[in-house]
Design a protein around this nucleic acid. Structure first.
Lengths: 283, 283
DNA sequence: CACATAATTTCCGTATAATGGAATTAATCT
DNA sequence: AGATTAATTCCATTATACGGAAATTATGTG
């Protein structure tokens, strides 16, 4: 579907007779922002996310922007040291960008702060521990760090994978503590479960679950159908905003009832300790 | 001097009769970039460097830009999640910016990678070990991390302080391996030593020193007049670009000749190991 | 609590700088 | 060396940035 659109677009560029019939916004059917500033941010995010070296055309393709525009913005980024030239005609993130990133991360590094707690959880409970970072713009969470269970049977959870908020312990631990408007938007956007592919559970059920999560400050998830279960607890920043969550996941048939309360308390305490670290860092 | 200029500028704004006589570039006598993209980068750097919460007016002042312009750009940054609102009318760096920074740093964290080598140096030599990061745009270096000697007599070296390249072991270890044009520019800009306040040594002397540093891959500095001495070695990225340096500094009267070769080798090896880590991270 | 003051935010005419397609140049492949 | 592909520059068009002034909101004060 997307490919078909692209093909059509390219055909247009090479066909002078039809070009005039299409308004500018038709040529780039995309969600790329307009305006120099917005586009620059857009590129920065792609550069941070993408491969360490990249060509102009590859970036332009990913950004869904014309090459000449990307070239102009790359010049600005280069002048600022946010981008540098590699060998040949390749670009790469610049040392200035790394410096800025280090400065920001040095103030409070969620991953570094959470590491010892992940270690602890895995050692005590012998199940995979996961740290999620919330992305307010994408309205999802990203797996920031994880330590796998020593069990041979385990899910492969790689850092960087995106997590949708309305499903699972990790997502809901975050979702429950977002501002009402944001919860609203997340639920409206979500239609089908990522694992099951089935339509999401009715609104009232989700709301009830979120209420309970807000009271307990941790979320449980138990889904024998997909053989997955977990517990997670939210991490807050110095202003009470949700930074992400820390949790433990396992196959549902290892989820033993008699451990549940202790595991929940351990997860909750880990989350609270990490939140305290964030508060101290910004005081 | 700067204050006087500001005062004059403000007077102009309130005086309609004189306004027309001044071209736009006269009103903001500064080095703030023009154009939306450049200004956005400018703001990003200030936000990363500055305090964790800030007001619009404070940022506008630091950026040397009109409040309305800063406000418009902050709106863009907020939409991208790079900036968020704090309590009251304050702003703060956003979670999206932190996420991006983490992604970048996760690929290769100079500070984290260098930590064990700093530890080693301090333990073996009992002198302050320093990690510097090179900033290509500012053409200086910044102290990224440091571990102090256990000696009661020591320099206070704080992370974040800027280091000028033409003086000292740390600066010259970096300077020697910059591209010829950049060395040229750095030396031309530098006029007086930061410690002594005396004019810099003649060009030929510096060049000779840099030649030797390039051969040995480490720099020595011994200045009994200011009671400071040190040894440093450059750290390279995967494309051969200088990322910074690692070094050891001490009062000149603790600098014992018989240790020199061993200390130099230890510093050099630390730097080479860190460079290897960078190369692996980006392969 | 109303008032005064200082900040933020919106508005809007002007002018500049962003835009993207085409032409040009440079790099890479065969 | 010629062919092919990608990067870079050019330039007419116009959307967008710009910043001063006005409106609004927050903050301090008697």
């Amino acid at each position: 579907m997307l490919n078909a659109e692209n093909g059509e677009t390219i055909a247009m560029w090479n066909n002078h007779s039809t070009r005039r019939f299409f308004a500018r916004e038709d040529r780039y059917v995309n969600n790329a922002p307009s305006g120099s500033a917005g586009r620059l941010i857009h590129l920065l995010k792609l550069i941070a996310t993408g491969p360490h070296v990249f060509s102009l055309s590859a970036l332009a393709e990913r950004a869904q922007l014309p090459a000449s525009t990307v070239h102009r913005l790359l010049k600005e980024l280069m002048q600022a040291g946010f981008v540098e030239r590699g060998t040949g005609q390749l670009y790469r993130p610049g040392r200035e960008l790394h410096r800025m990133a280090s400065q920001l991360v040095a103030k409070f590094d969620l991953i570094r702060s959470a590491r010892p707690f992940l270690d602890d959880l895995v050692e005590k409970w012998r199940e995979t521990a996961v740290l999620c970072a919330y992305s307010p713009v994408n309205r999802n969470a990203v797996i920031a760090d994880t330590i796998a269970t020593p069990h041979p049977l385990r899910f492969t959870v790689e850092a960087g994978r995106e997590i949708s908020l309305p499903w699972g312990a990790l997502g809901r631990a975050i979702l429950a503590f977002l501002p009402a408007g944001e919860i609203e938007a997340v639920i409206r956007e979500a239609k089908f479960g990522p694992l099951s592919g089935k339509p999401r559970s009715p609104r009232a059920l989700i709301e009830a679950d979120l209420d309970q999560i807000r009271q307990q400050h941790y979320s449980r998830f138990y889904d024998p159908e997909n053989d997955i279960a977990g517990i997670a607890s939210p991490i807050f920043g110095s202003n009470g905003e949700v930074l992400g969550c820390i949790g433990v996941t396992m196959p549902s048939n290892r989820y033993q009832r008699h451990l549940e309360d202790d595991l929940a308390i351990a997860t909750l305490e880990a989350a609270q300790h990490i939140s305290e670290l964030a508060a101290i860092a910004y005081s």
